[in-house]
């Protein structure tokens, strides 16, 4: 009697919903998620980078453009993931009871969460792949495998941010924490995570703060992949650290989704 459909089947059942939405929004979504990092690559990578490289400062060993390109890939994945897991999710909880409609069907609360994660995963892969094409066009990727590896690492990085933020979005009634998250979290992490300059330039205490943030691990691993200078053990360490954030974030998000939806 207990032939309960599995979790994957429950996610698959939500695919038509996401496909319907995605068909309408994918173009705009790709443009808005890649325009800004491309501007950064042009201004900082080519403009500023040309200036620095001419000055002969070779402490980073590669061109400045090649140095910040994986940083752009990683910070862009982070920014997109946080953007997609803040307001859109919060609005659905607070103003549009679409999740309540879904849990009145055989879908469970955890299936609704998994559906959102799966949809974001697809968009992260796509956004990172489009960005990777840009990086290739800029001539900053050393190998195909490296390019694929960097896309995968940055997708994982995106989830490491999205899942804890899903939990936050399910928990708050008022959206002011989002402004704090962006100003005191995402922007400083973009600037000081090794995307634009090596964290070794910072005081030692701050370096340790950077090591704790998922973004530093994303930037470091993406840079290994695109430059082709891979150290396997550290790479595995970065992936493991990001995976811990994903799993812990998922557990937290499941708890908060349940608290919000069961008696909403």
């Amino acid at each position: 009697m207990s032939t309960q459909p599995g979790s994957l089947e429950m996610v698959a059942r939500q695919w038509d919903y996401f496909r319907t939405l995605f068909r309408r929004t994918w173009r705009g979504s790709i443009v808005s998620n890649t325009v800004l990092p491309v501007f950064f690559l042009l201004a900082m990578g080519l403009g500023l980078g040309g200036y620095i490289d001419d000055g002969g400062s070779s402490t980073i060993g590669i061109s400045y453009l090649a140095f910040i390109a994986p940083g752009m890939l990683a910070t862009n994945a982070m920014t997109m993931a946080v953007g997609e897991s803040t307001y859109p999710i919060w609005v659905s909880f607070k103003w549009e009871p679409v999740y309540s409609a879904r849990i009145a069907t055989p879908l469970r609360i955890v299936d609704v969460l998994n559906g959102l994660v799966a949809f974001l995963l697809v968009r992260l892969v796509l956004t990172c792949a489009v960005m990777m094409a840009v990086l290739v066009a800029f001539g900053t990727v050393s190998s195909v495998a490296g390019g694929v590896g960097a896309v995968l690492m940055c997708t994982l990085l995106g989830l490491a941010y999205a899942l804890p933020v899903f939990a936050l979005s399910a928990s708050i009634d008022d959206d002011t924490p989002f402004a704090l998250l962006f100003r005191l979290g995402i922007i400083p992490m973009t600037l000081f995570s090794g995307a634009f300059f090596p964290v070794s330039q910072m005081p030692e205490a701050l370096q340790w703060v950077a090591y704790l943030t998922p973004i530093w691990h994303g930037v470091e691993s993406a840079r290994m992949c695109t430059t082709g200078v891979v150290a396997w053990l550290p790479l595995a360490g970065h992936a493991g650290y990001l995976a811990v954030w994903v799993v812990a974030g998922w557990l937290l998000a499941r708890r908060q989704f349940t608290a919000r939806l069961a008696d909403g």
């Binding site: 038509d16 919903y17 319907t20 309540s100 409609a101 879904r102 055989p106």
Partner: peptide, 30 residues
């Protein structure tokens, strides 16, 4: 899976059309 629910507050999805609301919902039932 075997019951139908019409909640007190309408929970229609405003991002979908009238017909899509029904089609997508049916998919949730497999």
């Amino acid at each position: 899976a075997q019951i139908g629910v019409c909640p007190q507050e309408d929970t229609l999805d405003t991002e979908l059309t009238v017909r899509e609301n029904l089609v997508v919902y049916g998919r949730y039932f497999g």
